[in-house]
Design a binder for these strands. Structure first.
Lengths: 206, 206
DNA sequence: CACAAGTATATGACGAGACATATATGTTAT
DNA sequence: ATAACATATATGTCTCGTCATATACTTGTG
């Protein structure tokens, strides 16, 4: 259902072809909060048209394949506005990386830390890409344009999320390093232990 | 694939039935990073057994339905350890709420802000639940147990993520309020504008 | 006594999403 | 020349995940 409304949203801004939606939107402006497969975009457009939420006209091009330009209908606009007011509960968090981490106690400490550092690197790269997009973005906080502000906020969300995860990884690496030090000092059997704060990271925020 | 390995991970800790996996793990200890439908758990166990990664024995109970207790095989343990070392790129972010936000410029400011506040409330509730779980958790940062530490880190991840999103929502609400003030002062046509920092929130962190 | 809830496993049906492949044409690079 | 690439749409197929439903026994509640 999400993809349906994402497409309605983009088509309300301007009519577009499936190709445009895929390349400009789901591989571009929306890539940091929603992606979509090409096949899925076309099939969703079909379905939306059959429900009369969008309509299409074929645009003939010289020396190019025809384009099917979709535009939103009044019914589509109503449906979008109705959907915008819904407040479904946030979906449960699901992160495959946390599955890996949760069961990685069978790995040597070095490998485990390597795993976390690798992930950190990937997220750092992602964060830099997001920052570049934000810098080049339309709404550099001066346009009194609601849509541009909201687009900017979606980028902020992605950046906030990525940065928080990086910080968590840094804290986690430290904790694991401290714990593996400790294990070296106190070989199995010796069950005395050093003090460590409540896994740090968890200050008295909010 | 993720569910396969989550199940292998839990079964490596101790043999369990599908019912246990569903109620204790995917509705309990793992719920903050992975969930699974009951039907999917049983079907995945079937598949893992047919691949000889787990085996089952039927435990007869008096005055209760039989239980099929699954345990991990050597092949299962190898597969889990192999998988643990994989470093796939982080999956693209996907957040249905951000679709809604992105296209919510057709809503009146009050409704838009209501949407954000509602979400904030839901996340605050989630955060409190996570904090309780963390407080009651096994690893209160004193056990020198790698598995308990890693379990704790997954909770930290969920809390960090949730808190970051709440902070972002607070910043966003402020920005939208500021913008809608501004719009009231400068009715359409009047294209002068007030100063606003680069959507705040984006300090010079990291 | 009826009914709901807890324990326990299983199947049918469907939608969402990913991947591969097919088709057609023109331009650009090797 | 030929291959690769960009433009443009479409279909087949598969996995993952969700929802509904079926079965069967027991305990607790009204």
């Amino acid at each position: 259902m999400s993809l349906d409304h994402a497409i309605l949203g983009f088509l309300r801004e301007r009519p577009m072809s499936g190709y445009d939606l895929k390349t400009m939107c789901f591989d571009g402006r929306a890539a940091h909060f929603w992606t979509a497969d090409q096949a899925q975009v076309y099939r969703t457009l079909d379905r939306l048209e059959s429900r009369a939420l969008v309509r299409s006209r074929t645009e003939r091009q010289r020396s190019r394949p025809d384009r099917k330009i979709y535009s939103i209908t009044d019914a589509g606009t109503s449906e979008l506005d109705r959907w915008l007011r819904e407040t479904p509960p946030p979906p449960p968090l699901r992160d495959p990386f946390l599955i890996r981490l949760r069961f990685a106690d069978s790995l040597p400490s070095e490998d485990l830390i390597g795993l976390l550092r690798e992930r950190r690197g990937a997220l750092q790269t992602r964060l830099e890409a997001l920052r570049e997009r934000a810098a080049g973005g339309a709404h550099t906080a001066t346009t009194p344009d609601r849509a541009a502000l909201l687009e900017r906020l979606t980028l902020d969300a992605a950046m906030a999320d990525t940065r928080a995860t990086i910080d968590w990884l840094d804290d986690s690496i430290e904790l694991i390093e401290a714990e593996s030090e400790q294990a070296r000092e106190l070989p199995p059997g010796t069950q005395r232990r050093l003090f460590a704060p409540p896994t740090a990271a968890e200050g008295a925020k909010r």
